[in-house]
């Protein structure tokens, strides 16, 4: 099952590349949102491979808190742009 992580890492490179090559702030926010979701799923896959629940809980926390903080950042950016 370890073969899953290879393509996952390669697909993760796309939003990382997008986040530093695009100037528009909202395109960067999209890229960061995608990176946060993908990394948390990769953490979950690793936790299932190692059969270690603690890593899995960290993955779910990263998923929830990561997306929540991106939402707050989007609201701040909206207020700043007004």
């Amino acid at each position: 099952m370890n073969w899953i992580l290879g393509p996952m890492l390669l697909i993760l490179l796309i939003p990382i590349y997008e986040s530093f090559q695009d100037e528009d702030i909202w395109q960067k926010m999209l890229a960061f949102a995608s990176v946060s979701t993908k990394t948390s799923i990769m953490i979950l896959v690793i936790s299932v491979l190692r059969d270690d629940w603690m890593i899995g809980v960290v993955g779910v926390l990263v998923l929830s808190v990561g997306n929540a903080s991106l939402m707050l950042l989007a609201q701040v950016l909206k207020r700043v742009n007004e």
């Binding site: 909202w26 999209l30 948390s40 998923l63 997306n67 991106l70 989007a74 909206k78």
Partner: peptide, 24 residues
């Protein structure tokens, strides 16, 4: 753990998509 991840995914990703669309 995986059911919790499924619920977290379904809720957070959907709401984040809405907030990003609204703010942008």
């Amino acid at each position: 753990l995986l059911i919790m991840a499924l619920i977290a995914l379904a809720i957070w990703n959907t709401i984040l998509g809405y907030v990003l669309a609204y703010c942008s």
